[in-house]
């Protein structure tokens, strides 16, 4: 992260201090801090999605596949072999990356709508497998992470605060990966593909290979985050971790609301969307099922219609408006 002015560094340091200290403002086992944890986790997931979708404009609707693979990998390793989730997380990342490679090889030549359709189907394949391979996954009833004495070694904590710091660290790591890719040669290639894939090919970018590399990184990170989710929730089922609306679309939506292709976008998006959703859940769920999901869908439509580039585009837009006002 070079290239920042001293003022920006100070700002960033202040922000980091604030983020680290934030849990002390909440009740240690309260509801608020749990929402914050989820917001951070989803910010990291949206950031991972952003690597392929934001930089190369390959819109995936199937990232739940990698997420679910990650959740199941570490949990099954823990149940059957007693392997700590810290190692399980790496196994999850390897499997997630392998799955991304597997699905990318045949589909990365596809663009736009076709790619979105193919990834959507892949996510659904994983959901069907998760539901019907009961011997491995426990089937539709779901699976529980065995609860032991809270310890760092098993990634189980007494205080939600510790989970918060873990999620925060994950978000920082994924964001650093995103920024590093964006500034690397890989990032320039990805953006060349986004601007004009044919032109990129002509000047010698191996577009398919470039996209596959990005997809593998993105899939591996998403799977590792799946492990964190499993260790945080202690219980999950195939429809939750492989869900289209609950994972794939939500990841994408957070990145879009915040600003697709930017590093800060997914973070802003998650801090806005997740608390809003939890709030809607609390207010409406007593009245009628489906209302909070309805709000979720309406919000997505509104953002697309008003500013498809998300919050990150609103700042510059306002500045431009103000400047226009000055001239008059």
């Amino acid at each position: 992260m070079s290239g920042l002015s001293p003022r920006q560094w100070t700002g960033l340091a202040l922000l980091a201090a604030l983020a680290i200290a934030l849990p002390f403002a909440f009740e240690p086992r309260g509801y608020g801090i749990r929402i914050l944890c989820l917001a951070l986790l989803f910010a990291a997931m949206a950031q991972a999605w952003n690597i392929v979708a934001g930089l190369a404009n390959q819109i995936s609707l199937g990232h739940a596949a990698f997420f679910g693979i990650g959740a199941y990998t570490s949990t099954l390793l823990l149940i059957h072999f007693g392997i700590t989730p810290w190692l399980g997380m790496f196994a999850a990342a390897i499997l997630g990356g392998a799955a991304a490679l597997l699905i990318s090889l045949p589909t990365m030549r596809l663009r736009g709508h076709y790619f979105a359709l193919a990834t959507l189907a892949f996510g659904e394949v994983m959901r069907v497998i998760g539901n019907s391979w009961g011997g491995l996954t426990g089937g539709p009833v779901g699976i529980s992470v065995p609860f032991a004495q809270p310890s760092l070694a098993l990634m189980q904590f007494r205080e939600t605060r510790s989970s918060y710091w873990l999620m925060l660290a994950a978000l920082v790591v994924v964001t650093l990966v995103f920024v590093a890719i964006k500034r690397s040669r890989l990032g320039y290639r990805l953006r060349a593909i986004k601007e004009n894939a044919d032109a990129a090919e002509v000047i010698g970018v191996d577009t398919t290979r470039t996209k596959i590399i990005a997809a593998v990184i993105s899939g591996a990170l998403t799977a590792a985050l799946g492990t964190l989710y499993a260790q945080f929730q202690f219980f999950f089922d195939p429809d939750t971790v492989f869900g289209v609306a609950s994972v794939s679309v939500r990841m994408a939506m957070i990145a879009i609301v915040g600003g697709i292709g930017t590093a800060a976008g997914p973070i802003l998006g998650a801090l806005f969307v997740i608390p809003l959703e939890e709030f809607a859940n609390q207010v409406f769920s007593a009245q009628a099922a489906g209302l909070s999901q309805l709000v979720f869908g309406l919000l997505l439509i509104l953002v697309i219609l008003i500013e498809p580039r998300g919050f990150m585009a609103i700042g510059p837009r306002l500045q431009r408006l103000l400047r226009k006002g000055d001239r008059r």
């Binding site: 609707l61 979105a116 609306a245 489906g290 999901q293 309406l298 997505l300 439509i301 219609l305």
Partner: peptide, 24 residues
């Protein structure tokens, strides 16, 4: 005339809205 990402997620949003409106 918007980018594909807007087209995709507009109809995805529509899907969520219609399904849950029907549920209600």
């Amino acid at each position: 005339k918007a980018p594909e990402v807007a087209q995709i997620f507009l109809t995805v949003g529509l899907l969520i809205v219609l399904e849950n409106a029907a549920l209600l």
